[in-house]
Structure formats: C-alpha cells, structure tokens
Design a protein around this nucleic acid. Structure first.
Length: 427
RNA sequence: GGAGAGGUGGCCGAGUGGUUGAAGGCGCAGCACUGGAAAUGCUGUUUGGCGGCAACGUCAACGAGGGUUCGAAUCCCUCCCUCUCCGCCA
C-alpha cells in the first residue's frame, strides 16, 4: 500500500513514480480529492465529539455534586448532547464511506518502483545481470523435453492426475516422487545452513492475510478459494510467512527475521490458457521452497542481494546453468519495488526459464499488513521492509535436471549433491 | 458439533454506567543513593488519525462489529478467538 501522507504531501512525485511502471495507467488524483473531503469531515466531527465529551463530563460532575438529575440544568445539557448526536449521525456515515473508498483505492495501487529499477514496458526490456555455469551446458544434441523423458522413465503420470483433478495437474511416481522429495529436503537443508529458520505454515489462509501481501483485492481470480470458509489456498509461501508478523511491533534487535518454508502452491493460472500446456512448468499445484526476510529498512538493499545469492547457491550446487535478470518497471510484480528473476537453462526449448523470483517489497507489504518495529530507547515505530524469493521452485528444478542431466542412452544422471538424498546415481 | 468459563496496556491483574487510556504489581528506561553493584526512593513507560515548526491540543481504540445512553471497559445483540468437559477424528 502507498503512504497516504506521502500522496498528500508529494502528489506529483508519487504520480511520476507510478508512471515509471506504466504511463497514464494509475491516477492518484481521485485519492487526493477524497482525502481532502475526509479531513474536512474529520475536523467537523472531532469538534462535535469534543463538545459531546465535555457535556458528558459536566453532567457526571454535577450529579456527583448533588444536582438533581431531573433538574432543568441537566436536562438542558442532555438536550444539547442529543442535538450533537443527531448532527454526528449525519457526518459519521459520510466520513466512513469516504474513508473506505480511499482504503479500497489505495489497495489497488501497486508499489512504487525503486530508483534503480530500469524503466521499461515489458519483459523485453529486462536486463541480464550475469550468467553462471556455461561450462555445464549439455553437449548431448538429442535432448528430449522433460515431459517426454519423464514419461519414458515412468515418473510422471499426467493422464491419471487429470482424471483425479483436472488439466494442469500431475502425479509424480516412484523415482519422480523421490526426486521431488530429495530436492525439497536438499533445498531446505541448504537454506537452513544459510541462516533461515524453517517454518511449516498454514497453506489455507484468510482474506486479510492475502490482502496483507498484495494478492487481494486485485488478483482474486488467480487464487483458489474455499468459498464456504472464507479461506484461500496459498499461491506462494510468501503469503503466510510474511503475514506471520501481521499487526505486530517487533524489536529492532530481532531483525532481520529470515524464514524458509516448503509448501505446495496453488495458482489458477487464469490468464495463461495455452501457455506451457505440456510438462510441469505451469501447473495449478506445485511445490516450492520459499525464502522470506523481514528487515530493517536501512539494510533491505543488501539483504535483497544476499537473498538472490542464497537462491543461486542451490543452482550452483546442482550445477545447473542459469542467468540472473533484473526486471524492468513494466514487468515487476504488484508488491515489488525491485525484482531479480533467476532463469535456469532448459535445453529442449533452448531458453532460460524462470525458476526463482526475488523481490524487495520495501515497506509496501509492511504498511498493508501493519508490520512495524521499534528501536530501543527511541520513540515511535517504523515499518519493516519485506523480501521474498523462491529458493527454488521444485518442479521447475526437476525439469531442468531431467533435461540438463540427460545422457545419450536415455537415462538421467542424478546431480552429485542429491545422490545421498536419493540413494542412487541414475534415473 | 454440544455444555460451561473467559478475552483489559510488553506481561500479570483490578475495574458492572460518570472527570478511567484505564488502580496495583512485574518488567523496562532515566535520575538519586553507592567505590561499584544489589536493595531502596523518585520519574517515565500503548498505538493510530487530525491540527501544529515544536511544546502541545484533540479524537479514536479495553477481541471485532453494531445497539442503548448526555455518558460504556462496564448493559444488550452478532461474530471471532482461547481454555475446560463431552462427542467426532488423521
């Protein structure tokens, strides 16, 4: 959420920063006008309430002092109190309505991009920051796409999964299930070593939680909802992990908080008909190990850099070639101020594909979810900065392994670091 | 799901309509005392909105939302959560 005070005080600056995302798409002027109206009503309401409080106290004192509660003096005060009440009943609903309009407008605005986020309209203008592992690019010219090799090895069962659920679901079978599980455990072990505390959070969450991290109200159609219970399936563990601290005031000394979690993730993929229909790149349910950091604002830039490094470390350990790109203003997510994607090499399509997205949300989620911290000895509270990144998407890692580790004879080598987790060397 | 009890400040806990944003205690911070510390004493110690350069003023908040009243932490209604017992269950 954007800061209403900032919008009020620097409207042009805020508008310009929003325009960096997309020209003419976000207009803050309705908010300015509503805010002006709201404050006007607030000052009238406050004055009335002040007088009303005075009357209440006066009556109390007089009755205590022995005045007749039925006497004319007290009756007059009561009458005045009633008059104020009538007036208030006009202003109050008006003000409430304007306030909730402002609130719902504010919730629709995306985060302001960082100064350093490159300007651009679409993913075309993202910037490649670095590549790693070109020496590990496979030499084998006859690589099958991961879904073909997977079915050949009998580790994917699409047909039955579709019968059990619907399209864009898969069952992992035998060694496939074992590989997925090995990857999850390996990733968690590494991230715990890197200083993250593991959490197994709820994967059904309430509406407030999904609003806190920015998925609601704008992207309701992207999440699965349990209508009866007002609960949603999480699209990423970022949601429960960040919201663990919602409406809390943390000690500055407890920062940074670093969490990792394995969870399944659920996405409706409403806008992606026809995209990636084959394989396990884009499913309604997938596994992910997520990293979340809650940090002091002064450190969020460096914490962001190290978060990306922590995600990269997994690919390096698996010897999978990848590149890191920095997303431009037109491509960063709703809640992000700055974002790096890590893309792994998928030989069958001859492309790098996203396997991790690491965002610095600055105070955007902190304000939405009211996550603040307090410095010992100092007055007042400040909003924390929140960061999140995949460390990594498990299914996509598996597809990268199936392709990059394919051998001429049609078998797939297990990456060395996973062999102890799998108890075998080849699929 | 059924029956009962309860939700008050960082924590414990008082408070059943009237100058109560809230007694008392603990904790924490500052000051005094001390060679230093402990003990003791004094002072301070919630958050948010609006106005103000600030001091400060004012409004709101005692699980959440409504209602009664001149006035609600206190009374009424709805919902949420916690605990105990019963039922069900991985």
């Amino acid at each position: 959420m954007l800061d209403l005070k900032q919008i009020r005080e620097n409207p042009t600056a805020i508008q310009e920063q929003l325009n960096r995302r997309s020209a003419d798409r976000y207009d803050i002027s309705p908010i300015l006008e509503l805010d002006r109206q709201q404050r006007e009503l607030e000052s009238i309401r406050t004055q009335l309430q002040t007088r009303s409080n005075e009357i209440g106290k006066e009556i109390g004192q007089k009755i205590k002092g022995g005045s007749d509660p039925k006497g004319s003096e007290i009756q007059a005060l009561k009458a005045e109190g009633n008059e104020i009440k009538t007036k208030l009943s006009e202003f109050e609903p008006q003000e409430k309505e304007i306030k909730s309009k402002i609130e719902s407008l504010l919730l629709q605005f995306p985060n302001l991009p960082s100064e350093s986020t490159p300007i651009g309209n679409s993913e075309e203008e993202n910037i490649e920051i670095r590549r790693w592992g070109e020496e590990y690019l496979p030499k084998n010219p006859n690589i099958l796409p991961h879904w073909e090799i997977g079915e050949k090895l009998g580790i994917f069962d699409f047909e039955r999964a579709v019968k059990v659920a619907r399209s864009r679901f898969v069952s992992l079978v035998g060694a496939g299930a074992a590989l997925e599980r090995a990857l999850i455990t390996f990733m968690l072990d590494r991230q715990i070593e890197a200083g993250y505390t593991e959490v197994i959070p709820p994967i059904l969450v309430n509406t407030q939680t999904l609003t806190g991290t920015g998925q609601l109200p704008k992207f309701a159609e992207e999440s699965f909802k349990c209508q009866e219970d007002d609960l949603w399936l999480i699209p990423t563990a970022e949601v429960p992990l960040t919201n663990l601290y919602r409406e809390e005031i943390l000690e500055a000394s407890s920062l940074p908080i670093k969490h990792c979690a394995y969870t399944p993730c659920f996405r409706r993929e409403a806008g992606s008909y026809g995209k990636d229909t084959r394989g396990i790149i884009r499913l309604h349910q997938f596994n992910k190990v997520e990293l979340v950091k809650i940090v002091h604002p002064d450190t969020s830039e460096e914490e962001h850099q190290s978060l990306v490094k922590d995600a990269e470390a997994i690919l390096q350990a698996l010897k999978l070639p990848y590149r890191v790109i920095e997303l431009c203003t037109g491509d960063i997510g709703f809640s992000a101020a700055k974002c790096y994607d890590i893309e792994v090499w998928l030989p069958s399509s001859g492309k790098y594909r996203e396997i991790s997205s690491c965002s610095n949300c600055k105070d955007f989620q902190g304000r939405r979810a009211s996550i603040r911290f307090k410095e010992a000895g100092k007055k007042g509270t400040k909003l924390v900065h929140t960061l999140n990144g995949s460390g990594l998407a498990v299914g996509r890692t598996m597809s990268a392994i199936l392709e990059n580790y394919q051998q001429e004879d049609g078998t797939v080598k297990i990456p060395e670091v996973l062999q102890q987790y799998m108890g075998r060397e080849v699929l």
